[in-house]
Design a protein around this nucleic acid. Structure first.
Lengths: 194, 194
DNA sequence: ATTTTTTCTTGACATATATCAAGAGCTTCA
DNA sequence: TGAAGCTCTTGATATATGTCAAGAAAAAAT
């Protein structure tokens, strides 16, 4: 099973091999330059991509500040789900932080799959439900954890990311300033050694 | 169109009248006592209900504190989506804050509808996607707004709730203490008059 | 109607986190 | 290789929010 097929399997669940082939055939592999915009806030999102290589940052402008919502890494996907599903202007801007290779399906084909593969809506359902539970975890973390605890938790589960991207963006997605992030980090590393 | 049919329409989208009838026929109306638990954290959630009347609080215990995630009012629904869809132990406890009347479908029937009504998975997909966008808004509010701004925003859109439930729970779902809530509230009302 | 319980407010104070400013260490790239 | 720009850290300080404690107000129970 190739990379893309595995992505589909991970997020959408299991389908017959021939259907899987059919699904993946709608994805086109493409290259993305560093700094290139996958989506700009306000546009209607017309595609969904899985990341083969490279890093994408999903963020929005709020007042005079950027709010990073997520950093997407190989194996993950990028899209603005709300915009894709409800045809609303995207909240998020999505930009490549590095050169990247992605597998992209456009919205038209994505919707078409629903007519082509009986089980497709069910798979989408699973996909979105997974996205939902991820957000639910995050809400809970904001309601119940301090900045330090959110840092710890994220660090435990995403160590690799810390030497791949500017830390200020991780700070933002955890809901703290770069300065606080830096201090929390120092404190955590001291605790870790001690 | 009755209340329940309208609920289905609002959350799941439009379907044929006969299919709608078929869907709603699986929901049973039932009474709930004040204080009764709809779901307890750790259980596997086996149902989904729409609220005809009454109020439910969705919360979790974190350390020695309760974290209120949401207060569900007539027209809304109650369930633990993650638990319902992935059969995992529920994170949330759901308790009736008042006497209540609800329309309930059990999981078995809910799943069965997928076999019965071709479009059902697609409707569920819409339902979950809506839930997703609500959470996305909330994440954004925690990443970009102060306690005061979150208060303001919630107040604008949910004034009625403020004289129906203990404010401490609203405080918690907005991620602040009752004391902070009280101060923010005072400040907001002064600004409002001035 | 009175008591009891719960909820809300307020003040004093503690702590967490943000802001501002400066400098150090990296990268990038000309 | 050196200049220019990022990025990260650190200190000083400000602000937002939490904690604790007490009392007032409101709601529920008797």
């Amino acid at each position: 099973m190739n990379e893309l097929e595995q992505n589909i399997n991970t997020y959408f669940g299991i389908i017959r091999q021939d259907e899987l082939k059919s699904v993946t055939s709608y994805f086109k592999e493409n290259q993305v330059e560093k700094g290139e915009y996958f989506l700009k806030s306000g546009q209607k999102c017309q595609k969904l991509s899985f990341i083969k290589s490279g890093l994408f940052r999903i963020y929005a402008i709020s007042g005079d500040k950027e709010v990073t919502q997520w950093i997407s890494t190989p194996g993950y996907f990028v899209t603005d789900l709300a915009s894709l599903y409800f045809n609303t202007p995207a909240r998020w801007t999505i930009q490549a932080m590095t050169e990247a290779e992605i597998y992209t399906i456009n919205k038209e084909d994505y919707v078409h799959l629903g007519k082509l593969i009986p089980k497709w809506h069910e798979l989408e359902k699973i996909f979105i439900a997974k996205c939902f539970t991820i957000l639910e975890d995050r809400i809970f973390s904001h309601l119940s954890m301090t900045a330090e605890e959110r840092y710890q938790f994220f660090f435990e589960n995403n160590r690799e990311l810390f030497n791949q991207v500017p830390l200020q963006y991780i700070a933002s997605m955890l809901g703290m300033t770069p300065e606080t992030f830096s201090r929390v980090r120092k404190k955590a590393s001291v605790n870790f050694k001690g």
